[in-house]
Nucleic acid binder design. Structure first.
Length: 469
RNA sequence: GGUCCCUUCGUCUAUCGGUUAGGACACCAGAUUUUCAUUCUGGGAAGAGGGGUUCGACUCCCCUAGGGACUACCA
């Protein structure tokens, strides 16, 4: 016998496409609530529609969840494998007189739908009260026999008590003509059998909750607690779609966001804990409560996502970032030699403070992978007049005599050189930058020199000196 | 059309009848600075509208407006 008091949550995606961030956030909330209560978090793939469900979509969802770091406490359940159980439940409903065979043909149904809409009422099948024997051997669906009177209360943990007049609730199809179960029947049966205590899902299901509640009651089952969380909208307030930049978690990964940054950002969308903005997974689990979930839909804000991700970039392990950034460079067809990789690794800790994403970090470190001689753009070339070149020649010798090749020492060396020359750093700083990184962006000079190393730095500087003016 | 949900700065949110309505991102200004960035300081910025209830409403109730979901033999 399982412990009835323990919380069991679940994420139940339908495998018809990629994992959207809305779904990812729903999964995260389910996980956090399970962690918060010491309960269990399960995953169930809602694939009763065999036509629309694809293996690649199932994989895409699992990949998305894995990347985000949202793992279930048990092997995922595939809804289509439970079809016999679903039929059994429908048979029980039929035996109890809470379901009926509906022989209505498509045209009749359509006419009834039009009539119902015109009269402002819900669709009702004529077969609700007819003798099924009259249907003969024609094809039929099995519908739930919804009560015509009274009201059904969905005591939602997020929205509060929501009342539905039963006459507004139509008779759901439970079993299709081909004897396969529909979503509304399958969720109820599966959530019950899996011992789900808290159904946390998108609020597009709030209306279904009433009808599902009726099915639970007809079966004499305990109705789980419902928590319908608002959807995530695009920056313009409209439903999130392709034109907003990204919607699948895989796209965010591709745009250089860290999974931990994504988790933090997503957790703050529709939920808050006082003034806390950046927090650990452990803190999120400790603080997360459905009672604190916001009722209104939240908009995706790229600027804030960037900020949050930047915070995580700073604390991310340098070796890991080097790995990720190297992959970005490779995807941009930049060849990375062994020496180049070392320069890249050296540059990462020096520039990562200013990067919001690994893509930006790749931009900031691109100068380390330039091949010699560094190509100068027009603006850089103009800076190198004869006076400046002469000065850079003396700087080359000055740096060559530098024994300590680290940022503090180089910083001091550059200032010393400026002092010797009797000019400000600005007099040759820009020119030196050009010889080191061309048109590519680079960090402050001391850091750039440090990342490149003595040999490469002096080599690039020398290249510029020997280039025809 | 019907049913249901939602509505605090541009955005994410705090407030759970009594606050100069707080924080964060973004934005603007200034400081730092060899580019960009970082960092620091300061600033502007909100209770959709209208009725109630109350000594007192962002907070409770009603109406309106504006968004959204559902209304499939999809999930």
């Amino acid at each position: 016998m399982t412990d009835r008091s323990a919380v069991v949550t679940r994420f139940a995606p339908s495998p018809t496409g990629d994992l959207h961030i809305g779904g990812a956030r729903t999964a995260l909330f389910n996980l956090l609530y399970a962690r918060h209560t010491g309960g269990r978090f399960l995953i169930r793939v809602e694939d009763t529609d065999r036509e629309r469900s694809t293996a690649s979509a199932v994989q895409a969802i699992f990949d998305g969840l894995a990347w985000l770091g949202v793992a279930a406490d048990a092997e995922p359940v595939f809804q289509h494998t439970r079809i016999d159980r679903h039929r059994e439940v429908v048979a029980e409903l039929l035996a109890k007189g809470r379901a009926y065979k509906d022989f209505t043909i498509a045209e009749e149904l359509e006419a009834e739908r039009a009539a119902a809409r015109a009269e402002g009422r819900v669709v009702r099948s004529a077969w609700r009260d007819r003798d099924p024997a009259e249907g003969g051997d024609r094809p039929f669906v099995l519908r739930f026999k919804s009560p015509l009177e009274g009201e059904t209360l969905v005591d939602d943990l997020v929205k509060g008590p929501v009342r539905f007049q039963n006459k507004e609730l139509d008779d759901l199809v439970l079993l299709r003509t081909d004897d396969t179960p529909t979503y509304n029947l399958a969720v109820v049966a599966d959530d019950h059998d899996m011992g789900v205590t808290h159904v946390i899902r998108g609020d597009d299901h709030l209306n279904n909750a009433a009808r599902q509640t009726l099915i639970y009651q007809a079966l004499g089952w305990t109705v789980p607690a419902f928590a319908h969380i608002p959807l995530i909208h695009g920056p313009d307030g409209a439903k999130l779609s392709k034109r907003h930049g990204a919607q699948a978690v895989g796209e965010f990964a591709g745009q250089g966001y860290l999974p931990e940054g994504m988790r933090n950002y997503l957790a703050r969308l529709g939920w808050g804990h006082g003034d806390d903005e950046i927090f650990t997974d452990a803190q999120a689990a400790e603080w997360f409560d459905i009672a604190d979930v916001v009722k209104a839909p939240a908009r995706l804000d790229w600027a804030k996502l960037n900020f949050v991700n930047q915070q995580y970039m700073r604390h991310a392990d340098d070796a890991r970032l080097t790995e990720m950034v190297a992959a970005v460079h490779q995807s941009r067809d930049v060849t990375i030699t062994e020496a180049g990789r070392a320069r890249l690794a050296a540059a990462i800790p020096l520039v990562k403070e200013g990067a919001h994403t690994t893509l930006e970090l790749a931009d900031l470190t691109a100068f380390t992978l330039l091949s010699r001689p560094v190509v100068l753009d027009e603006k850089s070339r103009k800076r190198l007049d004869s006076e400046t070149l002469a000065r850079l020649g003396r700087l080359h010798d000055h740096l060559n005599s530098e024994a300590q090749w680290d940022a503090p020492s180089l910083e001091a060396a550059l200032r010393k050189f400026a002092e010797i020359e009797g000019v400000g750093l600005g007099k040759f700083g820009g020119a030196l930058r050009s010889t080191l990184s061309g048109a590519a962006s680079a960090p402050d000079l001391a850091s750039a020199l440090t990342a490149l190393g003595k040999a490469e730095s002096l080599g690039r500087l020398g290249d510029a000196l020997s280039q025809p003016a």
